[in-house]
Structures are given as structure tokens and as C-alpha cells.
Design a protein around this nucleic acid. Structure first.
Length: 291
DNA sequence: CACTTGACCTGTCCGC
DNA sequence: TGCGGACAGGTCAAGT
């Protein structure tokens, strides 16, 4: 589900809500939702306090005082929801969208000593929580391969142009979804960025001009910055650490707007097509495919 | 190596 | 109403 802006929104919430809390108990599914052994969980997680919550690409990193880190990927439908102790005394937070937790999609429950809880819910079970020594995190295969963070200062249009050269013969949409080209772009912000830059998603990378790459670079950064400001985009499965939805979809220009007017040409409707195996939203007037 | 496709899961929606 | 198939905000492994 979540792309960079959604994962960053969850990170900010957790950073505020769980740092300094001490873990008293962990319960989890057997299998890939949390594949570490009970012995490791008892030795390195239970009794540990949370020292930091970081993000790289779409991956969350919850650092523990034991020099171990919980590495978490939400994939399509994962959620991390913090529930305070007051929930069980004064009732539910009125603006939370989650029901009573845990529920049938809860894969991992982390209880804190102060009576608060962190729930990892994941309807489709694609997501996971894995425990690594903190110093080993940079050596994880994904961390070795993943591309630059698009919102960092050193990510320039030239960087994007250079990194796209490794995918010259595929479509521009497939290329920007490739996490080794740049980090954090998923289906929503790919469509939004390509609409902003007036590039048809099925255009081959080699046919995208240098000026178009400049536009795409700027649009990806702008759209992700706005999305973080709005707390991300929400479908029926995405909520943040406090159980609330993001409002970026109120500002979306192409994604999931098929049948509605293009903001640049209100008389022309956004169309839904398939590119790179994914549902793709375009304006047929502004985004003209080359070759 | 680059590229595409299917697999991983569950739930929902849409057409017959 | 029931059922089959497509599809869903992501990555991997395996195939060509």
C-alpha cells in the first residue's frame, strides 16, 4: 500500500508516540510476518526500549536500545497503529478509524510496559517485521540496491537522468517504479508525477527528453512534498500510526480520477489504462505517447 | 544484464 | 444470490 509519503507519515507518528517506551511483550503470527525465533525476540526485543524510528525508501526502522532494529515493510496493506492506554479507560479516540484491536488481520502485537500497544495489521500478509542487528541493516540486500531518496538535496535532475540510463528500453513508468532507480515511488505518485510532467507512462525511457526528465524530477519532488504535508493518500486500507487517514487524494490530478475532467482540460476525461502491469491514469491530451 | 511475468495473500467489486 | 475473474498504493524469483 504505502509509498514514501505514507511511510514517512507513519514514521513521524511513531517517532512522536513510541520513542522511550519499553517493550514488555511481543505476540506474532508464525511465518513470514515475523520470521525471527522466539529466543531472539526474548533476548533482543522484550525488555528493550525504543531509541529511534527511521525510514529508508518504503522501509521503517525501529531502533532498540539492545543495538537491534525492527525492520518493517508494509507492502500493500500493512498498517502500524499505536493505541494508548486511555483507550481502555476513557474509550476510543473519537477520530480513530480502527475498531477494537487486535482484529483478524493483526499479525504482530507489541505491548509496552506502560500499557500502550503497537499493532501491525496486514490483510494480505505481504508485509513483514524482521529483527536485525542495527549495524547489519545497511548490509541487507535491499538497502544495498535501493536508489537515492528523492527529497534529499543531493538528488538532482542529473542524478535522476543518470540513474534512468540503466533502464533505457523499458517504459518510463516501470523505470520510476524500480526502487533501484530511485526510492519511494509507487503507483500513485508515479501517475501523479508523470501527469505533472506531461509524459505518457508507456513512453520508452530512451525517448524521454532531457527537459522532460527535468520536469519529472521536479514533479516527483513536489507531489511527494505535498503528499507528506497532507498525511499521505488513503484508500480503504491506509491509515497512519494514530489510525487516521491522509488527504492527498483530495489533491490528486490523475490517480484514480478516471472519468473525471483533467485539471488542465476539464472537457477531457482522465482515462485508465495498463502500463508495466499496473493500473495507470492519464490525460490523453496532455500525455501523448512518443513512438 | 535487462526486461517481463507470475507468485505471494485476502477481500471486494463487477458481470453473467 | 452465486460464482468466476479481475483487481488492489509492492517486491521477488524465475523465465525469456
Amino acid at each position: 500500500m504505502p509509498e514514501l509519503p505514507e511511510v514517512e507519515t507513519v514514521r513521524r507518528g511513531l517517532h512522536r508516540l513510541i520513542i522511550g517506551r519499553t517493550i514488555s511483550k511481543v505476540t506474532h503470527d508464525t511465518g513470514k510476518s515475523f520470521p525471527n525465533s522466539e529466543a531472539d525476540v526474548l533476548q533482543f526485543v522484550v525488555g528493550a526500549n525504543v531509541t529511534d524510528v527511521r525510514r529508508r525508501a518504503k522501509v521503517l526502522l525501529v531502533d532498540l536500545g539492545t543495538e537491534y532494529t525492527l525492520v518493517i515493510h508494509l507492502k500493500m496493506t500493512g498498517q502500524l497503529v499505536f493505541v494508548g492506554a486511555e483507550r481502555f479507560g476513557a474509550g476510543h479516540p473519537t477520530d480513530s478509524l480502527v475498531g477494537e484491536l487486535p482484529d483478524r488481520s493483526t499479525r504482530v502485537t507489541i505491548d509496552f510496559q506502560d500499557g500502550t500497544h503497537l499493532y501491525f495489521n496486514d490483510q494480505r500478509k505481504f508485509g513483514w517485521v524482521k529483527l536485525y542487528p542495527t549495524v547489519e541493516v545497511p548490509n541487507i540486500n535491499f538497502m544495498q540496491k535501493v536508489g537515492p531518496e528523492p527529497l534529499e538535496d543531493h538528488f538532482t535532475a542529473q542524478t535522476l537522468y543518470d540513474r534512468l540510463q540503466r533502464r533505457k528500453n523499458t517504459t518510463i513508468k516501470a523505470a520510476i517504479l524500480d526502487q533501484t532507480v530511485l526510492a519511494g515511488v509507487g503507483n500513485i505518485y508515479a501517475d501523479e508525477g508523470l501527469w505533472g510532467a506531461c509524459i505518457h507512462p508507456a513512453t520508452r525511457v530512451k525517448d524521454v527528453s532531457r527537459d522532460q526528465v527535468n520536469d519529472l524530477w521536479r514533479e516527483i519532488r513536489e507531489v511527494m512534498t505535498l503528499a507528506i504535508e497532507k498525511g499521505g493518500s488513503s484508500n480503504h486500507t491506509y491509515i497512519n500510526a494514530e489510525g487516521k487517514k491522509g488527504s492527498y487524494m483530495d489533491f490528486a490530478r490523475a490517480f484514480r480520477r478516471e472519468g473525471l475532467g483533467c485539471p488542465r482540460h476539464p472537457e477531457t476525461m482522465i482515462e485508465k489504462i495498463k502500463v508495466a502491469g499496473r493500473g495507470t491514469h492519464i490525460c490523453p491530451i496532455c500525455q501523448v505517447q512518443i513512438r
